[in-house]
Design a binder for these strands. Sequence first.
DNA 1: TCTCCACGGGAAGTAGGGGCTG
DNA 2: CAGCCCCTACTTCCCGTGGAGA
Length: 498
Amino acid sequence: MTANDSPPEDRSADEEPDRSFAVDVEEVLEDADEEESPSQGLFDDLLSGDPIFENKEVLRPSYTPHELPHRSDQINKMATILVAALRGETPSNILIYGKTGTGKTASAKFVSQELEQTSKKYDVPCEVEYINCEVTDTQYRVLAQLANKFIEQNRAHAERRLEDLADLREAIEEGATAPEATPFGSATEIDSRVDELEEELEGMEPVPMTGWPTDRVYKEFFDAVDYRERVVVIMLDEIDKLVEKSGDDTLYNLSRMNSELDNSRVSIMGISNDLKFTDFLDPRVKSSLGEEEIVFPPYDANQLRDILQHRSDIAFEERALTDDVIPLCAAFAAQEHGDARRALDLLRTAGELAERGQAERVDESHVRKAQDKIELDRVVEVVRTLPTQSKLVLFSIILLEKNGVHNINTGEVYNIYKRLCEEIDADVLTQRRVTDLISELDMLGIVNAIVVSKGRYGRTKEISLSVPTEETEAVLLADSRLSQIEEIQPFVQARFDN
DNA sequence: TCTCCACGGGAAGTAGGGGCTG
DNA sequence: CAGCCCCTACTTCCCGTGGAGA
């Protein structure tokens, strides 16, 4: 991962139709053994049926809709605050709260797009930078990423100026007298300006992703922002993750920047899933960051229905859905705390299942199947990408569960875990560490661990699996290291009998 | 009522890998 | 190269703690 590999131009290419076709091919091949193979070509059958989707992209989470039903209040409030940027003033910092899938990010992105467009229209320098703090979760990385974005922009800016100057220079050389209006009357003045710019360009080297002291990165970022006059809105998505992992230093630094900047103004827009995260903040940061607060309440089933209806009109062919599909998706998602992302996912998956099953229309059964599939996919993905040590811990829990032990406690898990480690020759972690791993599994929703006190017999976590045993075990055993366990399983089991 | 189990969980420290500067 | 710095993954140390049973 290098710092300067973010060419945003690729996006349009990504969205070309043949890409989604490519995905479909994979899915078809994957399922080829399940379906009756037709006598004709592999694809003929699939193409011959009525298509269900008209534009599947609309249902993906990456899609930013042009209209966000039931969010106009929040959007208007954001716009009223951010309009200050277009007047060249510093907008108040904004904190946006709301659970996942309540349209926070979509609304914020929508508003920032509008803001940037309007700023171009009126030629006011105003930029929005989006950072997802779940990915970029340390002060260093946030600063480095911001610094690099601005450095890149500044480079582009300086390069444009250079081109302009070159044009001017050429014009002068061709004999035309430079217009009085230009500040660079003579060729020599242009040359010295060119030299200056080239020197500036030399200084604009990207910040490495690791290695520098943080204050140096901060300085670099600071200079890059202050390079020219503008208002910068920094959008920190999942800001609670950042605070949780690396404290409030980043926010403190960012919020006091304005007092030191000469040319530009910075405004922070924080987006958080967690209503209480400001409790951990320094009071100064808290008050400056929370100048304006906007809450996104969860959608209820009716609102979800509107949203789904809205998108499905674009996404699906006419009459591709039976009447009960959208209400059912909405109801399922409303149970999951009004998560619109989940609702859209459900609808898309249901559509895909119908398409694969070559059904003419999407109906209720597809939605139910989709619900199961999404849950299983999530679990499989999470388990598959677990580090080996966590896999071993999880495997220990599964072994215990399979042997009829319920309300498993930490000690039992640790004993089995130790045996497993010896068998596959892995490092044995301390019990302290293993409890942390169990807590992590709990947070991922793979196991359910509650702390209970058994009086005389101590205090422990009671652990139970919250995912299907067989499927999870299969995923674990697919790991190259864990697969060695398969043969020693009877041995481990024998330990229980004594 | 008091004890004391079997851990939970906070804090601080360490090792090792990556990367920079001079 | 040494001397920094940062990050992750872990260890060590240690101070709780809810409640069954003496």
